[in-house]
């Protein structure tokens, strides 16, 4: 039987305000999950060790935590696999990131639920209800299949780099749900949703760190959903309001006019007021030869690109 060492984050607000770490050892079968390990420690060694869980089978999304710094579902992680990855070191177990700890591995999920609610994660159909159910085609469901798999475990939220810098960012899970309803053909709020999601702290705040796609245990790919919400915002014509959308627009104009990014366009177009105020910075860039060339580049065979831009239809 293997023996493993666990180095666990502790926080017991009833007995003291400080965070500390505690080491436990456990002899166990080779197929023990991290969740079962923590539960055995709780049962056999330390009844104060707090952890949240329910289904034990990667369905309820309660047991997300960090193992060696990486957010996982504890019930989906094998202790022996973790040791193989870290070279047999003690396994570091921490609560998920971007949350305040409440007790040991349990965090305060309220902000996550508030943001989830803020995207209106339910169908708002247009017009009166039909006599029977609303039938949806297989193809229409396929569009939102990935996002429908979300179990709200917050593994994505835990490692979102935009959230770490801006606690008000609505975050990957809520936006994935936003897309799931915006793209549902039974929903009648597409334009309103596009507006709701693309304001401050929304779609255009995602820094594309790709951690959400990397960590999601369910293959939701929240970053891809956010990208699709950007596409919906463009289609719904709400795209000019935000600097993030204008940034994307500058790329499209560059593409049409030269085939390559026209940096002269990018800064003033994205942020017209700020780019004027930032003169000292602009001059520093200029002195280093980092100012964009006033003559936009033109690739060979630009006519192909122009035709593609005219012809290619968006199906989002």
């Amino acid at each position: 039987m293997p023996t493993s060492t666990f180095d666990i984050f502790r926080y017991q607000p009833d007995t003291g305000p400080e965070h500390f770490r505690q080491t436990y050892e456990l002899e166990h079968d080779a197929d023990l999950t991290l969740l079962d390990a923590v539960l055995r420690l709780q049962n056999e060694q330390d009844g104060t060790l707090a952890v949240r869980y329910s289904c034990r089978s990667a369905i309820c999304g309660s047991c997300a935590c960090r193992a060696d710094g990486k957010t996982v579902l504890a019930c989906m992680s094998q202790v022996e696999d973790l040791k193989a990855q870290n070279g047999g070191q003690p396994i570091k177990v921490d609560p998920i990131g971007n949350f305040e700890p409440l007790k040991d591995l349990i965090v305060d999920m309220d902000p996550f639920w508030e943001k989830f609610k803020s995207v209106k994660p339910y169908l708002v159909p247009d017009g009166p209800a039909p006599e029977k159910e609303r039938i949806v085609s297989k193809e229409a469901m396929q569009k939102i299949y990935n996002e429908s798999k979300c179990i709200l475990c917050a593994a994505c939220y835990s490692e979102c780099n935009s959230l770490a810098a801006d606690a008000d960012y609505v975050g990957p899970a809520a936006l994935a749900w936003g897309y799931r309803f915006a793209a549902d053909e039974r929903d009648g709020q597409r334009t309103a949703r596009a507006k709701l999601y693309s304001g401050e702290h929304g779609v255009w705040d995602c820094t594309r760190c790709m951690y959400c796609n990397e960590r999601c245990p369910k293959g939701v790919d929240p970053r891809d959903a956010i990208e699709k919400l950007g596409g919906i915002a463009f289609n719904e014509g709400v795209s000019w309001a935000d600097a993030g959308a204008r940034h994307a627009k500058a790329f499209l104009i560059s593409m049409r006019t030269g085939g390559k990014l026209n940096e002269t366009l990018l800064v003033p177009f994205t942020n017209p007021i700020k780019s004027q105020l930032d003169l000292p910075f602009a001059l520093r860039m200029l002195s280093k030869g980092k100012a964009p060339s006033p003559i936009p580049h033109r690739i060979k065979k630009l006519d192909e690109v122009k035709k593609l831009m005219k012809n290619v239809k968006e199906t989002i």
Partner: peptide, 14 residues
């Protein structure tokens, strides 16, 4: 051309 830097993907995925 430019690869679109993720910006074109965000506006016009196809």
């Amino acid at each position: 051309t430019c690869c679109g830097a993720g910006d074109i993907a965000e506006a016009k995925p196809n």
